[in-house]
Nucleic acid binder design. Sequence first.
DNA 1: ACATTAAGTGATT
DNA 2: AATCACTTAATGT
Length: 216
Amino acid sequence: MVTYNNNLADKFSSVFEPELLKEMEAKSKILFVKEGELIIDIGRTVTTIPLLLSGVLKVSRVDENGKELLLYYVSAHQSCAMTFTCCMQQYPSEVRAIAESDVELIAIPIGVMDEWLMKYPTWKSFVMRTVRNRFNELLNTIDQLAFQKLDERLVNYLVDKSKATGSTIINLSHEEIALDMASSREVISRLLKKLENEGMVLLYRNQIKLLKTIFS
DNA sequence: ACATTAAGTGATT
DNA sequence: AATCACTTAATGT
């Protein structure tokens, strides 16, 4: 397929060697996932590795009562580190991944992992790099949960979100934010109000504008 | 104009 | 910091 070819070559030519791109083209499928769709849920076995071409994936943990806690975002040109660790031995997923926006991804069957790791240095370093990056990020979020106050976490959340979407306008209700942070709507409202008084954000209905001061 | 949903607030634990 | 009960404001029909 022409579009497929272009996508793969355009977006990953600097990351992977030509032979690998070719083999990817042959053995993987391109998927389009609509906003809000579940990509993988906790307990399900991982059968393909997602490699994002465009859009954003939200990865979260879920507790016994179904409450979610945001772990991290996966954006274009990235993959989900969890799938690497899970898929090697066909373990079920420990996390839930939902399409945050419309997503275009390459689904790589897990069967080729071992082979590619040995055959392609660029694949190996890509896998290693994403695992290492994600691991560091997870350490950060653990630090946040353990040591940071909720208001600092909220600022962090907003800045992360803005980076993931590439916009300083966040289209979320206070309730949705509360869900992501495993907090409650009222608490988030109060903290946001505080941030607004400090001149870091502007609040609207279903929308928050980030001002420059929040990024420093 | 009315119903519905988001956001703001005080009190209580 | 969470929850409840309630008010106020914005938005859709």
